[in-house]
Design a protein around this nucleic acid. Structure first.
Lengths: 118, 118
DNA sequence: TCTTTAATATACCAAAGAGCTAATTAACCA
DNA sequence: TGGTTAATTAGCTCTTTGGTATATTAAAGA
Protein backbone atom coordinates (compact mmCIF):
# COMPACT_ATOMS: atom_id res chain seq x y z
CA UNK A 1 0.00 0.00 0.00
CA UNK A 2 1.33 3.46 0.61
CA UNK A 3 4.25 2.71 2.90
CA UNK A 4 7.23 4.68 1.67
CA UNK A 5 9.48 1.73 0.95
CA UNK A 6 6.85 -0.02 -1.15
CA UNK A 7 6.22 3.17 -3.04
CA UNK A 8 9.92 3.59 -3.75
CA UNK A 9 10.46 0.05 -4.95
CA UNK A 10 7.26 0.20 -6.95
CA UNK A 11 8.41 3.36 -8.67
CA UNK A 12 11.70 1.68 -9.57
CA UNK A 13 9.95 -1.38 -10.96
CA UNK A 14 9.59 0.11 -14.41
CA UNK A 15 12.33 0.53 -17.02
CA UNK A 16 10.93 3.80 -18.35
CA UNK A 17 10.93 5.32 -14.89
CA UNK A 18 14.44 4.10 -14.19
CA UNK A 19 15.52 5.62 -17.49
CA UNK A 20 13.94 8.92 -16.50
CA UNK A 21 15.87 8.90 -13.24
CA UNK A 22 19.05 8.09 -15.14
CA UNK A 23 18.38 11.04 -17.42
CA UNK A 24 17.89 13.34 -14.46
CA UNK A 25 21.23 12.27 -13.03
CA UNK A 26 22.72 14.39 -15.79
CA UNK A 27 20.81 17.43 -14.61
CA UNK A 28 17.48 19.19 -14.61
CA UNK A 29 15.20 18.77 -17.62
CA UNK A 30 11.74 19.77 -18.77
CA UNK A 31 9.03 17.25 -19.45
CA UNK A 32 9.49 17.40 -23.21
CA UNK A 33 13.23 16.92 -22.92
CA UNK A 34 12.68 13.96 -20.63
CA UNK A 35 10.04 12.50 -22.88
CA UNK A 36 11.95 12.88 -26.14
CA UNK A 37 13.80 9.52 -26.09
CA UNK A 38 10.59 7.63 -25.32
CA UNK A 39 8.28 9.19 -27.88
CA UNK A 40 8.88 6.37 -30.34
CA UNK A 41 7.48 3.92 -27.82
CA UNK A 42 4.96 6.03 -25.95
CA UNK A 43 3.00 9.27 -25.98
CA UNK A 44 3.67 12.39 -23.96
CA UNK A 45 0.79 11.84 -21.52
CA UNK A 46 2.29 8.43 -20.86
CA UNK A 47 5.54 10.00 -19.82
CA UNK A 48 3.68 12.57 -17.74
CA UNK A 49 2.07 9.71 -15.85
CA UNK A 50 5.40 8.07 -15.16
CA UNK A 51 6.73 11.38 -13.95
CA UNK A 52 3.81 11.71 -11.62
CA UNK A 53 4.55 8.30 -10.14
CA UNK A 54 8.14 9.35 -9.55
CA UNK A 55 6.97 12.63 -8.08
CA UNK A 56 4.57 10.91 -5.72
CA UNK A 57 7.39 8.64 -4.63
CA UNK A 58 9.44 11.75 -3.92
CA UNK A 59 12.12 10.75 -6.40
CA UNK A 60 11.52 13.73 -8.65
CA UNK A 61 10.56 17.30 -7.87
CA UNK A 62 8.92 19.50 -10.44
CA UNK A 63 9.39 23.25 -10.50
CA UNK A 64 7.61 25.82 -12.63
CA UNK A 65 9.16 28.29 -14.97
CA UNK A 66 6.62 29.92 -17.28
CA UNK A 67 5.11 27.03 -19.23
CA UNK A 68 7.95 24.67 -18.43
CA UNK A 69 8.24 22.25 -15.55
CA UNK A 70 11.90 21.76 -14.77
CA UNK A 71 12.29 18.34 -13.17
CA UNK A 72 14.98 17.50 -10.71
CA UNK A 73 16.19 14.21 -9.28
CA UNK A 74 15.76 13.70 -5.56
CA UNK A 75 17.55 10.53 -4.54
CA UNK A 76 16.72 10.88 -0.87
CA UNK A 77 14.00 8.19 -0.81
CA UNK A 78 16.57 5.78 -2.19
CA UNK A 79 18.40 5.96 1.13
CA UNK A 80 15.83 3.84 2.91
CA UNK A 81 15.71 1.42 0.03
CA UNK A 82 19.49 1.10 0.00
CA UNK A 83 19.46 0.67 3.74
CA UNK A 84 16.92 -2.12 3.43
CA UNK A 85 19.03 -3.83 0.82
CA UNK A 86 22.16 -3.49 2.90
CA UNK A 87 20.68 -5.99 5.32
CA UNK A 88 21.02 -8.53 2.55
CA UNK A 89 24.58 -7.73 1.47
CA UNK A 90 25.91 -10.71 3.38
CA UNK A 91 23.41 -12.99 1.71
CA UNK A 92 24.29 -11.70 -1.73
CA UNK A 93 27.76 -13.14 -1.35
CA UNK A 94 26.40 -16.38 0.09
CA UNK A 95 26.64 -18.24 -3.20
CA UNK A 96 30.32 -17.59 -3.25
CA UNK A 97 30.60 -18.51 0.43
CA UNK A 98 28.85 -21.81 -0.15
CA UNK A 99 31.30 -22.61 -2.88
CA UNK A 100 34.08 -21.79 -0.45
CA UNK A 101 32.56 -24.03 2.21
CA UNK A 102 32.18 -26.83 -0.30
CA UNK A 103 35.75 -26.55 -1.43
CA UNK A 104 36.91 -26.61 2.18
CA UNK A 105 34.84 -29.78 2.72
CA UNK A 106 36.15 -31.76 -0.21
CA UNK A 107 39.71 -30.78 0.46
CA UNK A 108 39.96 -31.07 4.26
CA UNK A 109 37.56 -33.89 5.28
CA UNK A 110 39.62 -36.82 6.60
CA UNK A 111 39.33 -39.90 4.40
CA UNK A 112 37.06 -42.72 5.53
CA UNK A 113 37.86 -46.44 5.50
CA UNK A 114 35.82 -46.65 2.31
CA UNK A 115 38.04 -43.98 0.81
CA UNK A 116 41.11 -45.98 1.72
CA UNK A 117 39.84 -49.49 0.87
CA UNK A 118 37.29 -49.15 -1.93
CA UNK B 1 7.82 -5.94 -18.36
CA UNK B 2 9.81 -8.99 -17.48
CA UNK B 3 13.28 -7.51 -17.38
CA UNK B 4 15.04 -8.89 -14.35
CA UNK B 5 15.55 -5.60 -12.57
CA UNK B 6 11.90 -4.62 -12.85
CA UNK B 7 10.88 -8.04 -11.59
CA UNK B 8 13.19 -7.71 -8.61
CA UNK B 9 12.02 -4.23 -7.63
CA UNK B 10 8.42 -5.23 -8.23
CA UNK B 11 8.82 -8.22 -5.92
CA UNK B 12 10.22 -5.94 -3.24
CA UNK B 13 7.39 -3.44 -3.60
CA UNK B 14 5.17 -5.28 -1.13
CA UNK B 15 5.54 -5.29 2.66
CA UNK B 16 4.37 -8.88 3.02
CA UNK B 17 6.95 -10.08 0.56
CA UNK B 18 9.70 -8.07 2.22
CA UNK B 19 8.65 -9.57 5.56
CA UNK B 20 8.88 -13.04 4.05
CA UNK B 21 12.41 -12.34 2.87
CA UNK B 22 13.28 -10.99 6.30
CA UNK B 23 11.95 -14.19 7.82
CA UNK B 24 14.03 -16.30 5.49
CA UNK B 25 17.15 -14.42 6.48
CA UNK B 26 16.90 -16.36 9.74
CA UNK B 27 16.99 -19.65 7.87
CA UNK B 28 14.95 -22.09 5.82
CA UNK B 29 11.24 -22.42 6.55
CA UNK B 30 8.20 -24.28 5.24
CA UNK B 31 5.23 -22.48 3.76
CA UNK B 32 3.15 -22.84 6.92
CA UNK B 33 5.94 -21.49 9.08
CA UNK B 34 6.39 -18.57 6.76
CA UNK B 35 2.67 -17.92 6.60
CA UNK B 36 2.01 -18.11 10.32
CA UNK B 37 2.64 -14.43 11.20
CA UNK B 38 0.40 -13.28 8.37
CA UNK B 39 -2.60 -15.51 8.92
CA UNK B 40 -4.39 -12.83 10.92
CA UNK B 41 -4.31 -10.58 7.90
CA UNK B 42 -4.45 -13.02 5.03
CA UNK B 43 -5.15 -16.60 4.05
CA UNK B 44 -2.64 -19.32 3.26
CA UNK B 45 -3.25 -19.25 -0.50
CA UNK B 46 -2.54 -15.54 -0.31
CA UNK B 47 0.87 -16.22 1.15
CA UNK B 48 1.47 -18.97 -1.40
CA UNK B 49 0.87 -16.40 -4.11
CA UNK B 50 3.38 -14.00 -2.62
CA UNK B 51 5.88 -16.81 -2.38
CA UNK B 52 5.35 -17.59 -6.02
CA UNK B 53 6.09 -13.99 -6.94
CA UNK B 54 9.32 -14.17 -4.95
CA UNK B 55 10.16 -17.50 -6.53
CA UNK B 56 9.59 -16.15 -10.03
CA UNK B 57 11.85 -13.22 -9.19
CA UNK B 58 14.47 -15.75 -8.12
CA UNK B 59 14.57 -14.39 -4.58
CA UNK B 60 13.31 -17.60 -3.03
CA UNK B 61 13.93 -21.21 -3.94
CA UNK B 62 11.54 -23.93 -2.90
CA UNK B 63 12.70 -27.50 -2.22
CA UNK B 64 10.58 -30.57 -1.58
CA UNK B 65 10.72 -32.81 1.42
CA UNK B 66 7.72 -35.14 1.68
CA UNK B 67 4.72 -32.83 1.88
CA UNK B 68 6.78 -29.85 2.93
CA UNK B 69 8.32 -27.19 0.72
CA UNK B 70 11.37 -25.81 2.50
CA UNK B 71 11.93 -22.28 1.25
CA UNK B 72 15.30 -20.68 1.10
CA UNK B 73 16.39 -17.11 0.55
CA UNK B 74 18.41 -16.38 -2.57
CA UNK B 75 19.67 -12.83 -2.43
CA UNK B 76 21.56 -13.06 -5.70
CA UNK B 77 19.05 -11.03 -7.76
CA UNK B 78 19.49 -8.24 -5.23
CA UNK B 79 23.02 -7.76 -6.51
CA UNK B 80 21.87 -6.10 -9.72
CA UNK B 81 19.37 -4.00 -7.82
CA UNK B 82 22.03 -2.88 -5.35
CA UNK B 83 24.37 -2.16 -8.21
CA UNK B 84 21.72 -0.03 -9.87
CA UNK B 85 21.16 1.89 -6.66
CA UNK B 86 24.88 2.40 -6.15
CA UNK B 87 24.84 4.71 -9.15
CA UNK B 88 22.72 7.04 -7.04
CA UNK B 89 24.76 6.93 -3.83
CA UNK B 90 26.34 10.28 -4.63
CA UNK B 91 22.94 11.83 -5.16
CA UNK B 92 21.63 10.39 -1.90
CA UNK B 93 24.15 12.43 0.04
CA UNK B 94 23.37 15.54 -1.93
CA UNK B 95 20.94 16.77 0.70
CA UNK B 96 23.56 16.38 3.35
CA UNK B 97 26.11 18.04 1.11
CA UNK B 98 23.83 20.99 0.61
CA UNK B 99 23.39 21.24 4.35
CA UNK B 100 27.15 21.10 4.68
CA UNK B 101 27.56 23.85 2.12
CA UNK B 102 24.99 25.92 3.94
CA UNK B 103 26.66 25.46 7.30
CA UNK B 104 29.98 26.40 5.78
CA UNK B 105 28.35 29.55 4.45
CA UNK B 106 26.76 30.67 7.71
CA UNK B 107 29.80 29.87 9.82
CA UNK B 108 32.57 31.25 7.62
CA UNK B 109 30.93 34.35 6.18
CA UNK B 110 32.72 37.37 7.65
CA UNK B 111 30.57 39.18 10.18
CA UNK B 112 28.81 42.34 9.12
CA UNK B 113 28.68 45.59 11.04
CA UNK B 114 25.25 44.56 12.25
CA UNK B 115 26.71 41.35 13.67
CA UNK B 116 29.30 43.25 15.56
CA UNK B 117 27.14 46.11 16.81
CA UNK B 118 23.84 44.76 17.65
C1' DT C 1 -7.59 -48.15 3.22
C1' DC C 2 -8.97 -43.94 5.32
C1' DT C 3 -7.63 -39.68 7.54
C1' DT C 4 -4.75 -35.91 8.34
C1' DT C 5 -1.39 -32.52 7.03
C1' DA C 6 0.99 -29.40 3.68
C1' DA C 7 0.55 -27.02 -0.08
C1' DT C 8 -1.22 -25.70 -4.60
C1' DA C 9 -4.83 -24.95 -8.14
C1' DT C 10 -9.07 -22.84 -9.76
C1' DA C 11 -12.24 -19.51 -10.28
C1' DC C 12 -13.70 -15.41 -9.11
C1' DC C 13 -13.63 -10.17 -7.76
C1' DA C 14 -12.07 -5.35 -7.00
C1' DA C 15 -8.62 -2.15 -7.46
C1' DA C 16 -4.51 -0.45 -9.53
C1' DG C 17 -1.40 0.26 -13.56
C1' DA C 18 -0.01 1.43 -18.13
C1' DG C 19 -1.31 2.86 -22.23
C1' DC C 20 -4.13 5.55 -25.70
C1' DT C 21 -6.87 9.74 -27.85
C1' DA C 22 -8.91 13.93 -27.34
C1' DA C 23 -9.73 17.97 -24.66
C1' DT C 24 -8.09 21.52 -21.54
C1' DT C 25 -5.11 24.70 -19.01
C1' DA C 26 -1.57 28.10 -18.78
C1' DA C 27 1.84 30.90 -20.30
C1' DC C 28 4.10 33.35 -23.95
C1' DC C 29 4.20 35.98 -28.31
C1' DA C 30 2.60 38.38 -32.51
C1' DT D 1 -7.10 39.13 -29.31
C1' DG D 2 -5.67 34.89 -31.39
C1' DG D 3 -2.14 31.47 -32.05
C1' DT D 4 1.57 28.52 -30.37
C1' DT D 5 4.01 25.82 -27.08
C1' DA D 6 4.31 23.01 -22.76
C1' DA D 7 2.10 20.14 -20.05
C1' DT D 8 -1.84 18.09 -17.71
C1' DT D 9 -6.59 16.16 -17.35
C1' DA D 10 -10.35 13.26 -18.63
C1' DG D 11 -12.22 9.30 -20.15
C1' DC D 12 -11.62 5.05 -21.97
C1' DT D 13 -9.42 0.26 -22.51
C1' DC D 14 -6.88 -3.83 -21.14
C1' DT D 15 -3.94 -6.29 -18.05
C1' DT D 16 -1.97 -7.22 -13.71
C1' DT D 17 -2.23 -7.67 -8.88
C1' DG D 18 -3.81 -8.98 -4.36
C1' DG D 19 -7.10 -11.01 -2.19
C1' DT D 20 -10.88 -14.45 -1.27
C1' DA D 21 -13.37 -19.32 -0.90
C1' DT D 22 -13.44 -23.75 -2.38
C1' DA D 23 -11.52 -27.85 -4.42
C1' DT D 24 -7.65 -30.75 -5.31
C1' DT D 25 -3.12 -33.06 -5.04
C1' DA D 26 0.40 -35.59 -2.61
C1' DA D 27 2.53 -37.63 1.05
C1' DA D 28 2.41 -39.65 5.91
C1' DG D 29 0.47 -42.35 9.30
C1' DA D 30 -3.22 -44.99 11.81
Amino acid sequence: MPDTLSQTFSALADPTRRAILARLRLGEANVNQIAEPFLTRMTLPGVTKHLKVLEKAGLVTKGREAQWRPCKLNAEPLKDAAEWMDEYRVHMEETLDRLGEYLKTVTTTPRTDDDRNG
